[in-house]
Design a binder for these strands. Structure first.
Length: 1001
RNA sequence: GGGCCCAUAGCUUAGUUUGGCUGGAGCACCCGGCUGAUAACCGGGAGGUCGUCGGUUCAAAUCCGACUGGGCCCA
């Protein structure tokens, strides 16, 4: 019979150890049927509050493995807090609904390319589709959460597009507006001509790419110079030259006037002369920068017309000579420094591009041509007029729209800003009190970002987002509306019901100006979706319009998201908490690193190396993944592979399941809840040791979770599972046999049951399905009632008395076991052959490890020696090389093992070997513990001599009825097996006394 | 160009904050064992220039500096 079939049959009969997936199915079915998650969800109703907010994902794409890591980290903390009796505010799931990502999806679907296309298509229809698309794969997210055991309230999820949420966002915007922290401005921002909107720096950062651009130097003749003098000016964006208004030089910088071949004199920085004239140049004059101030020049293109003070040289310290000529072309509309200088010099701005980045009729030469595409025509014209000094190309990184791959331009446009630069100090100060994990983020990446934070460009010229609730009248008065009621009041009419606060409905509304009574128009913007999510802690409760559990004075206790959120959610949360409530947004902030594949490359859909979290969960189960994430350093980039996850989880979790199966399968049953009456008392040091180890594990897990660092918890859990399986159970196995002392057996059962249940509670935050399975299997819940769930039990207090002396003694004892095994190996005697004696040197009357007679018994049992004897080091000489193997440490004897078994012991070893193989046979036949079997044994002469006196004991041990012994060999047959070992040979017919069921093997 | 993080056995890692005994462990590998957990379990072995170089020190995986490689962020 194939092994697989055998195992399946055993599993069907309930005698095999279930896989992690079996456990998960069983537990999820139990939770689904009894509603455990809903009952546990919010924690203790009247407990102290633990504040948490789920960072809202956008659900228009499926979850990836990185999301899973974050969810595990969040969930284990929430479970721990629930068990500690906290009330969770709030367990709401959340969805980020607005933004360009959603819009672009719809644009693609209908081939829309511009604002014009969208408006022709119909803004209302467009937004309706965005709304419908936004939660397209929410069910995948929910299913993923269910399987990983991340319990959130999906039935009452907050959605950033819901009217109450939008109203809370409006309230916050008006609060900022009233405090002068929300202002309109004309600033240079990254701008996508295809999306026709400005972008945030966060968005731009994702789209830098290598590109080839012109690198040109042009001549700008100084007015009224004789001989003719020309300024040399360098640029990589010729398309900005029609918008040139000034040239900047630097005070204190040395400039040279160089004679050119055509007799004109060229002005450039002295440092740049060598670059421009590698063969040398005739310098006719040296100038200091400030002497150039106020000189006027002829502009590169005769476009904007005269304006006061335009086309002159000004001074500014931002001019350098590392690149270019030390004379910088200033187009105030197209660069931040340009805009600043233009404003200081009062020359205004000049922008000859339309919203789609094409030249208007102001530049007839290139009218209708896109900004970058116009470069060749502009250069050709300059050349024709003799104004082009040098034209080359350059490779550099240039920003492209990360959504649509269009080259961006930097452009001064009207926008609304949150004046974060005015609260920089508060942001830094409040962040200083945040407990970051890992800690270096506080002053490192995040801290740096805060100190450099510029004003937050909030407005977007888009359609699907929270509309900016500001109306402007023709006198330039702005009215910011902070609630739906205020909107109705200013309108003078009730709002339609239901009222949808999105662009279509809102843009139609004309308010009266709050100051002058004039009619107004809404500022035609939506806001950055990051603002929406930053408002989640209060907006999810419709604060301040409803009396929810939001406390404006209290930060969140804990949040956890991916490291990329330092520029995203972590930032927007802090900005809003600071400007609205003047407090930090969160007390503890944990970040998770990037998920990489086995080769260390970033997992991405396009690369095809991404692991599908739902498929993984379906194959391995949630706890296997959880265990993997706990065991690795999730604050750093993580290399993950399916094989790695399976291997990491298999050992510890598989061993634990085996122990639980043994507890049930060996017929062990105790009272329904072994924890109810406190730790069982037992004189056995083995029992007391296990319970002490259990308590140590509980303390280690508690300490780790209090510090938001689960890794030490995982280490402690793995160690305990090993102690439980490889030492406690291994040494306790004789105690569970039917022939064992009844009282001792009862104590062992009670101890193991208590330990398993205490352990289940300890690991409940880390491994929710495994712990629940243990609780139901061992605690007698039987997967029946919700109130027996481990997740509704409190976090355990002291589980047992810590006994450091016993733990140390046991460690010493286990050390002696290793020494004993080494001695056996040296003696060349297998463990199944009992040896007469192990001598332990230099231990006191309390025996090895100070564990008394029981310690000696454990040692004797584990090493299969008849007795353990204590001896003084001085007796070393009595243990010669012939009959003993001796282990010495530091020149002193530690242990000695008698290497010569007696005839009787040797025979016992042979009997042991035969019995072991027959036991194996029983198991292959799928026989249970108590079932009897008929065995015919045919033995060699020596084996028969050894076994005959032990026939009775052998029959009992094997459950053989009858057991017949004969000399010789059995004829081959289907039920006959033959074994050989160390020159011995025997065959046996083992058959079940009952007829197998039809369809069985 | 600037900032931050990481580097320990083939793989996953403990130890680094606070310098100190032969740098622990698991997986895989080789050898061996198993006395009702058996796709489980146990022992032994082999495998390490603790990324490289330099410094501080009686003593450095640990502290300092430089460099190399990898990653993230900013420009």
């Amino acid at each position: 019979m194939p092994a697989g079939a055998s195992r399946r049959r055993m599993a069907a009969e309930g005698t095999g150890t279930p896989t992690g997936l079996d456990v998960q199915r069983r537990v999820l079915a139990y939770w689904d049927a009894t509603g455990v998650p809903a009952r546990a969800l919010a924690g203790t109703a009247d407990g102290p509050v633990f504040r948490f907010t789920e960072g809202p994902p956008t659900a228009n794409g499926p979850p990836h493995l990185g999301h899973l890591v974050g969810r595990v980290v969040k969930d284990l903390q929430l479970r721990y807090r629930r068990m500690r009796g906290y009330r969770l505010v709030s367990p709401m799931a959340g969805w980020d609904c607005h933004g360009l990502a959603v819009e672009l999806e719809i644009e693609k679907r209908h081939g829309l390319r511009s604002h014009h296309d969208i408006e022709a298509y119909g803004v209302e229809k467009f937004c309706d589709e965005c709304r419908a698309d936004t939660l397209r794969v929410a069910s995948l997210w929910q299913e993923m959460s269910r399987q990983i055991g991340y319990w959130l309230d999906y039935d009452h999820a907050y959605r950033t597009m819901d009217p109450p949420y939008v109203e809370s966002v409006w309230w916050s915007l008006k609060t900022l507006f009233d405090r002068g922290l929300l202002e309109r401005g004309h600033y240079v921002l990254p701008y996508c001509p295809r999306c026709e909107t400005s972008l945030s720096s966060h968005e731009v950062a994702q789209g830098y790419r290598e590109a080839t651009d012109p690198s040109v130097t042009i001549r700008l003749p100084l007015v009224g110079s004789s001989p003719r003098r020309e300024l040399l000016v360098w640029t990589t964006t010729p398309w900005t030259l029609p918008a040139n208004l000034l040239v900047a030089a630097r005070r204190g910088l040395a400039y040279a006037v160089v004679r050119a071949g055509d007799g004109t004199e060229l002005v450039l920085a002295a440092d740049a002369v060598a670059r421009y004239f590698p063969e040398g140049a005739e310098v006719v004059e040296r100038l200091e920068g400030s002497t150039l101030e106020g000189r006027t020049y002829t502009p590169p293109f005769d476009t904007p017309g005269p304006g006061a003070g335009r086309y002159r040289v000004v001074l500014d310290d931002f001019v350098t000579t590392e690149e270019g000529t030390g004379l910088v072309h200033i187009a105030p509309s197209f660069g931040p420094d340009d805009l600043r200088i233009g404003a200081r010099e009062r020359v205004g701005t000049y922008d000859p591009l339309d919203p789609r980045g094409r030249f208007t009729e102001a530049v007839p030469l290139v009218r209708g041509i896109g900004f970058k595409a116009a470069d060749p025509a502009l250069l050709k014209d300059l050349e024709a007029r003799g104004r082009l000094y040098r034209a080359e190309t350059i490779r550099h990184t240039y920003p492209f729209c990360y959504r649509c791959d269009t080259p961006l331009l930097y452009r001064a446009i009207d926008s609304w800003f949150v004046r974060t630069s005015r609260v920089t100090e508060r942001l830094v100060a409040l962040n200083g009190g945040v407990d970051w994990v890992p800690p270096y983020l506080r002053d490192g990446r995040f801290g740096n970002f805060l100190t450099e934070a510029k004003d937050w460009a909030l407005s977007r010229s888009r359609y699907w987002g929270t509309p900016l609730p500001i109306w402007r009248c023709r006198n330039g008065h702005d009215t910011c509306v902070g609630s739906f009621a205020e909107l109705a009041e200013r309108l003078g009419t009730p709002l339609p019901t239901p009222f949808d606060p999105h662009r279509v409905g809102l843009d139609r509304l004309a308010l009266r100006c709050g100051r002058c009574g004039e009619t107004t128009e809404r500022e035609p913007y939506t806001i950055d979706a990051w603002y929406d999510s930053g408002a989640a802690p209060f907006a999810q409760f419709h604060y301040p319009f409803e009396p929810g559990p939001f406390d404006p004075a209290a930060p969140l206790d804990y949040i956890a998201e991916g490291l990329d959120q330092t520029r995203g959610w972590f930032y927007s949360l802090l900005v809003l908490a600071t400007t609205l409530f003047d407090r930090p947004a969160y007390r503890a902030c944990l970040t998770t690193g990037l998920v990489l594949d086995a080769e260390g490359r970033k997992m991405s859909k396009s690369r095809g190396n991404a692991l599908d979290p739902l498929a993984l969960l379906g194959r391995l189960g949630g706890d296997a993944l959880r265990w993997t994430f706990l065991a690795i350093d999730f604050t750093e980039p993580m290399r993950l592979s399916e094989a790695g996850i399976e291997a990491a989880a298999g050992r510890t979790l598989g061993t634990l399941r085996n122990v639980v199966t043994f507890y049930g399968g060996a017929g062990v049953r105790t009272s329904p809840d072994p924890t109810a009456s406190g730790p069982p008392s037992s004189p056995s040091v083995l029992d007391r040791w296990l319970l002490s180890r259990l308590e140590g594990t509980r303390v280690a897990v508690e300490r780790a979770l209090e510090r938001y660092d689960p890794r030490p918890a995982a280490t402690a859990v793995a160690t305990f599972v090993d102690d439980l399986s490889a030492w406690y159970l291994r040494r306790s196995r004789p105690r569970f046999r039917p022939e064992a002392d009844a009282e001792d057996r009862r104590r062992a059962e009670a101890t193991l049951g208590y330990a398993l249940l205490g352990f289940a509670r300890t690991i409940a935050p880390l491994l929710p399905t495994t712990s629940e399975w243990i609780q139901q299997e061992v605690g007698g819940g039987g997967f029946l009632a919700a109130d027996r769930s481990v997740h509704l039990l409190p976090w355990p207090g002291t589980l047992a008395q810590p006994l450091p002396a016993i733990e140390e003694g046991m460690a010493e004892l286990r050390d002696l076991v290793e020494i004993g095994r080494e001695l056996r190996q040296r003696a060349g005697v297998k463990a199944r052959v009992p040896l007469p004696e192990l001598v332990v040197f230099g231990v006191g009357d309390a025996g090895p490890g100070g564990l008394g007679a029981e310690g000696e018994l454990l040692l004797a049992g584990e090493l299969n020696v008849r007795r353990v004897r204590r001896a003084a080091s001085e007796e070393r000489a009595r243990y010669g090389e012939d009959d003993w193997v001796v282990r010495e440490e530091d020149g002193r004897p530690r242990a000695a093992l008698s290497r010569r078994p007696t005839e009787e012991l040797r025979d016992e070893g042979l009997a042991r070997e035969v019995a072991r193989r027959l036991q194996q046979r029983r198991k292959e036949l799928g026989l249970r513990y108590g079932e009897t079997v008929a065995i015919e044994l045919a033995l060699s002469a020596e084996l028969e001599r050894a076994l005959a006196p032990r026939r009775e004991a052998l029959a009992r041990e094997l459950g053989a009825e009858p057991l017949t012994l004969t000399a010789g060999a059995l004829a081959a047959g289907p039920e006959v097996g033959t074994w050989e070992f160390e020159g011995h040979r025997f065959s046996a017919r083992v058959h079940r006394p009952t007829v197998p069921r039809p369809g069985g093997a």
